[in-house]
């Protein structure tokens, strides 16, 4: 089901004018920020489809930057996000992308902070709900409605078992999981959506696993489904 609960229909509480172009864009920005793991120094945002056609009028540019600053969808500072970003030392550029997008409201973001960088593509599917469709070149799909663990790792036998064993030992229930790899025994990535928050200790143990090369933890709602 694309829409999981009653608050994906009634809600979110948000600053206007558009749930797809404003609230959804804030949330996509937030996810990109959590994927990077820190405040970006540079961000390049590319708009596709309807986003490309109308982003200025809807404040989609302002909204995605608000998300990069970790603002919530109803934060009254959203209209001033570009100024706030400049003050925080973030350099942002916007482009429009040509070609068919996977969804009419799609944006991708490339972020950099020091040595770290990440790339993400997300779609705003209506009512402030989003679907991430790509992370660092992997076809990973998740909604960020739940606490979500993104692990980059080698494609080796037993890696998933090692991760899920650690989650199971912490009594964390997995609601949805998506795995993609660039090639057999090459680089791989896994997105794991869980019902409750994942304790920091468990995240640290997963990070230490032999084949794991990177880990991001995205929890937009502080531990439970929105």
């Amino acid at each position: 089901m694309r829409f999981k609960d009653v608050f994906s229909i009634i809600g979110p509480s948000m600053i206007g004018p558009s749930s797809s172009h404003t609230a959804g864009a804030v949330r996509i920005g937030r996810v990109a920020r959590e994927l990077l793991g820190e405040l970006p120094e540079e961000a390049e945002v590319v708009f596709y489809g309807s986003f490309a056609a109308t982003y200025g009028g809807h404040g989609t540019d302002v909204a995605v930057v608000a998300g990069l600053l970790r603002f919530g969808t109803d934060d009254e500072r959203i209209p001033d996000a570009l100024r706030e970003a400049a003050e925080a030392g973030m350099k942002v550029t916007f482009r429009t992308g040509a070609g068919a997008a996977v969804h009419p409201n799609t944006l991708s973001a490339e972020l950099r902070a020091g040595e770290r960088s990440c790339r993400m593509t997300g779609c705003s599917i209506g009512g402030g709900n989003i679907e991430v469709v790509e992370a660092n070149g992997f076809d990973l799909r998740f909604t960020a409605d739940y606490p979500t663990l993104i692990v980059f790792h080698g494609d080796r036998p037993g890696v998933l078992a090692d991760m899920t064993r650690l989650l199971s030992a912490a009594n964390v229930n997995i609601g949805c999981m998506d795995v993609d790899r660039k090639g057999r025994l090459g680089e791989a990535a896994t997105a794991i959506e869980t019902d409750g928050g994942i304790p920091g200790g468990v995240l640290a143990e997963i990070r230490k696993l032999r084949s794991v090369t990177g880990l991001s933890y995205i929890d937009l709602n502080g531990g439970a489904a929105r």
Binding site: S13, G16, G127
Partner: peptide, 21 residues
């Protein structure tokens, strides 16, 4: 109108249709 002025509303189900309910 509150939505168009970047005020706070609840999307029902979207911001564009936030006035009906």
């Amino acid at each position: 109108e509150v939505n168009a002025s970047m005020g706070r509303i609840v999307a029902t189900p979207t911001a564009g249709s936030c006035g009906v309910i």
